[in-house]
Design a protein around this nucleic acid. Structure first.
Lengths: 226, 226
DNA sequence: CTTAAAATATGATTTTTGTCATACTTTAGT
DNA sequence: ACTAAAGTATGACAAAAATCATATTTTAAG
């Protein structure tokens, strides 16, 4: 059982409000485990008995639409918590969480979270701020989906992937997403996404080498994304 | 100064967690006032020094997109609170609030909200649940915008207006929105919306009598909206 | 190493949606 | 009651995006 006190990623989430005593309690009740790429952490409609803290790796939060397609609502990475909304609302999850890379996650049982919640004001305020931040983000994405073209959304998404997950030594995007997954972020048909990537490639905005995507002209992409 | 103790609408929001003492404090510090149809309660980017409680009437929360069009993100009605996210996040507002009807709203200063917040656990939990509910709703709308056609979204929106705001004696939708505002909910060009409403009218799904819209075939509309 | 399956790519075509033009109707203000 | 302005309606057309078909490439499994 690893010590939470020495875990760096807790600094990035609401857990940073916990004191030494609380961290010991946390270490005592949490379960740490590995999730392989493609594995489901939880499914839309699942009842959760706790929250997950992402120690390493990235996952997608998706929702199945009635047209049979999955929409990616959010990408969650190292340091972030999963399942907070469901826990607070005391409702089944609204979204599925699926690993995009091999991950390490810690599961913290509901009872412990609720204890922190009731006894540590800073913790609950932090958690609340996280949900508020997610709400703001969701509203912004909602507006972009409603008002911007697929091309604009693709440009914005490429920049987001660049800025959020960084690049390899060769400048190619670190987070690997299939074309279908990129389409599922911007809300379009896979073929349309592939075609636009191809256009961006031809016009020098990006370079595609197999799986690798390199943003060659971020300035122009930014202008496109507005 | 009216007594909050006797105000029914507080029962619908986080304020229902307040006890008698707290309600007296609330009555003491709140400001109640009238907002005329079309008036702005707050603007995107405004710094708020408190939250608003909607006593009567309906308003829209909108965000201006870079294409110059406003997107309606949410409709807020009697009993709901405005500006919670901004207050908790300690950030300027992300959305504008504009009255769709004449409204009565109460303004509660930040200091008082924060006091309740720190002293009344039930209150803060309620507030948190509200934000969580908003997040879930936003995620759902986001998926619909990304995955459904304009026609499906229009059908869904008409049903939403029917179910949420009710109908007059003649079965026409109670909440009056301009065609432009309906378009701004579903995220489409005004002309497209007008054309589709016209189609719905011709095919007997709805009846249009000037401003009035009557849903004639909810079953079929529901099927359309999926 | 081979092969089937999955992912990527591209063309052809259709459907959906947006834009521009214009006409008609309603509303609000004098 | 009159008039300008705003809102609603509709046609014609253009642009965006989806769908279907079909290669080609990459990946994973035996």
């Amino acid at each position: 059982m690893s010590r939470c006190e020495q875990c760096i990623v807790r600094e990035f989430s609401a857990l940073k409000a916990l004191n030494k005593d609380e961290l010991l309690k946390l270490a005592d009740c949490k379960t740490s485990y590995v999730v392989k790429k493609g594995e489901v952490i939880f499914d839309e409609g699942d009842h959760l008995d706790g929250i997950f803290c992402v120690k390493d790796g990235v996952c997608k939060l998706t929702k199945l639409s009635s047209n049979g397609k999955d929409q990616i609502v959010k990408l969650v990475t190292r340091g972030e918590l999963l399942g907070q909304r469901s826990l607070i609302s005391e409702e089944p999850t609204n979204l599925s969480a699926i690993a995009l890379e091999d991950m390490t996650v810690c599961f913290v049982p509901k009872s412990q979270v609720m204890d922190f919640f009731n006894e540590n004001n800073k913790f609950s305020l932090n958690m609340m701020k996280n949900v508020c931040h997610d709400l703001k983000e969701a509203d912004n994405i909602l507006v972009n989906l409603a008002q911007k073209s697929v091309k604009e959304r693709l440009a914005a998404t490429l920049l987001y992937l660049h800025d959020t997950f960084g690049v390899h030594e060769d400048d190619s995007l670190k987070l690997h997403l299939s074309r279908e997954e990129i389409s599922s972020i911007i809300g379009t048909a896979t073929e349309s996404c592939i075609r636009l990537l191809s256009d961006f490639n031809k016009s020098g905005l990006i370079e595609i080498h197999g799986k690798k995507i390199i943003l060659k002209n971020k300035k122009e992409l930014r202008k496109l994304a507005e």
